[in-house]
Structure formats: structure tokens, C-alpha cells
């Protein structure tokens, strides 16, 4: 499928700020499941952006606005083609026990995706969630989908009740949150069971124009899900917010250990403490690819 993505971030300051600095991770990355056809970044007021690839291979753009301004607008636009990309059934049938052994043999590259992080600590998941998700003999694919579904069913999607600083403990206790919380929760559960997984930020298409399926959640802003490392080297995207595997309607932007590694915009400014943030994301399907 082909999409046009537009991701606008707008900061409006109550009093003019004298300087703003920010690091962006809003440039979708190429992968087996998607190809970036074109990409453009517009910053208003107009300033140049520097680019580099980070530790996790994400595109990072940095800009600074060194003069007085009362508004910053960052518009990231891209055209992307996504492809169906699914693990082989044989991989999904691998028993958990066997998968763990395979992980142990390639632990060096997976180590960081098994460690606790500030936003996805393992202790709350270990202590507060009694449910057993993984049995040695169970096929990994089935177990993962069950976990995905359990989060979807147990936790209520409720925007506004949590933010980045909400500890995982509270999310587990109150049983509600947004895609970001569900992704962190799933990461914590997976990692505490020795299954390597990473955080994905991206976009999702809410309505399928060709079908009448119910709306998918998470399209209004950046979306988040997880990728699990399957034996053989396949990173399998799972979206607990929508109870499904990530598919052609998911556009991947950046990956990391948790949200902190992929934050779409991290910045500071000098000025009055009063600011308004507005984020708009649109993902529109364009004419089917001709190629």
C-alpha cells in the first residue's frame, strides 16, 4: 500500500521564546516491510536541520532557532510504500523453550532488548501480574498473540489519563492508558520472560477505505507498538492497542529500547513557561503503486 504521511508538531509560546532547540525522530526508516519513496521536512521559522543515524539506526534531525519566535512548526511529510511481511508459520510454531535457547546463543545482539529501562522496568510486571503467558512447549506465535489480546482486553484505551511520566505501576493498577503505555507494558512482560522485544514508534491508518472494519486506534498522533525478535531473526510487530499484528497499515518510524530512544521531538526553549503543543498526524492512502 502506498501512503502519504504528514506529521505536524506545533509549539505555541505564550511569550516569544528567544531560542528553541530540538531533536526529531520523525523520518520513517526503510525496512523489509516498507520503503520510503520521498521525504521532506519543513521547519517554521525556516532553519536548517542536521541529520545523523543513531545507535538504533533511526534517522535523527536536529535544528535550532536562535532568534525570537512565538511559534515553532515542524512538518514532516513522506511517501511510503508498505508491503505484506509476515513470519513463516514454522517460525511461529517454535516452542517457547526452544526459542529461549536460540536467544541465548545470539544474546550479544539481543541483550539490550532484554534489559529493564526507565520507562519499561521489569519489577512491576513481575510482581503485579500473576498471569502465566508462556509455557515451555507452547508455540511462540500463539503465546505472543494471546499476550497481545490479553493487554487489549484487560486494559482500557483512555487518552489523557496518562503521560510519559506515568509509571508502569499506575498503568497496571488502573488498567488504562494509551498505546505508549501498552507498548511499555508488553515490553516489560516480554523481557521479564526472556523474550527480546523493542519499542516502535510510527503511524497507523485508522480506516481501511476498501473495507468497513472498525476504526483502528492511534491514528490521531504518533502510534506505538512493539516488535518481538523471533528465532531466525524476524522482528515481528505486535500492536496490543489494536489486538493485531502490525501489517501494511502500520508505518514504522523509529525503534529503540523504550519511548526515550524514539521520542518524535525532544527539545527545549528559552522563554516563559507557558506553551501549547499541538500534534497532527495524517496518513492517507494514495493511488495504488504502479510498480
Amino acid at each position: 500500500m502506498r501512503f502519504k504521511v504528514s506529521h505536524t508538531t506545533r509549539y505555541k509560546y505564550a511569550a516569544p521564546a528567544s531560542e528553541s532547540f530540538a531533536e526529531l525522530r520523525v523520518w520513517p526508516r526503510d525496512s523489509e516491510s516498507q520503503k520510503i519513496i520521498s521525504r521532506e521536512l519543513v521547519i517554521k521559522p525556516e532553519v536548517r536541520a542536521d541529520h545523523y543515524l543513531d545507535y538504533f539506526g533511526n534517522h535523527v534531525e536536529f535544528f535550532s532557532i536562535p532568534f525570537r519566535h512565538s511559534e515553532v512548526r515542524v512538518i514532516s511529510e513522506a511517501e511510503i510504500e508498505t508491503f505484506p511481511y509476515e513470519p513463516r508459520p514454522a517460525v511461529l510454531d517454535t516452542p517457547i523453550g526452544e526459542a529461549r535457547q536460540i536467544y541465548n546463543s545470539t544474546l550479544f545482539r539481543l541483550f539490550e532488548y532484554l534489559q529493564p529501562t526507565e520507562l519499561a522496568p521489569l519489577t512491576p510486571a513481575r510482581k503485579k501480574i500473576r498471569k502465566v503467558f508462556f509455557h515451555e512447549t507452547q508455540p511462540i506465535g500463539e503465546a505472543l498473540l494471546k499476550l497481545n489480546q490479553w493487554i487489549f482486553k484487560t486494559f482500557e484505551y483512555k487518552p489523557g489519563v496518562t503521560d510519559v511520566s506515568t509509571p508502569l505501576d499506575d498503568v497496571i493498577k488502573n488498567k488504562r492508558g494509551v498505546c505508549q503505555d501498552f507498548a511499555h507494558l508488553m515490553l516489560a512482560i516480554l523481557r521479564s520472560h526472556g523474550i527480546p522485544a523493542r519499542y516502535v514508534s510510527g503511524y497507523i491508518e485508522a480506516f481501511d477505505p476498501e473495507k468497513t472494519d472498525p476504526e483502528l486506534i492511534g491514528a490521531a498522533a504518533s502510534h506505538a507498538w512493539v516488535e518481538v525478535f523471533l528465532p531466525g531473526g524476524f522482528w515481528w510487530g505486535l500492536d496490543p492497542t489494536n489486538n493485531q499484528a502490525a501489517g501494511e497499515r502500520h508505518v514504522k518510524v523509529a525503534v529503540g529500547r523504550d519511548y526515550n530512544d524514539v521520542a518524535p521531538m525532544r527539545g527545549t526553549y528559552k522563554g516563559a513557561l507557558d506553551q501549547q503543543l499541538q500534534v497532527m498526524v495524517s496518513l492517507t492512502r494514495t493511488a495504488n503503486a504502479t510498480t
Binding site: 530540538a22 531533536e23 536536529f62 535550532s64 526507565e118 525532544r266 527545549t268
Partner: peptide, 14 residues
Amino acid sequence: PIATAGTSFEGVPG
């Protein structure tokens, strides 16, 4: 503070 998540606003941005 921009390069390192979670640090306070001390430091030299950028």
C-alpha cells in the same frame, strides 16, 4: 538536555 533523555534542563542544548 536534548541528547540525553530524562535529564533536567541544565546543560547546553544542542
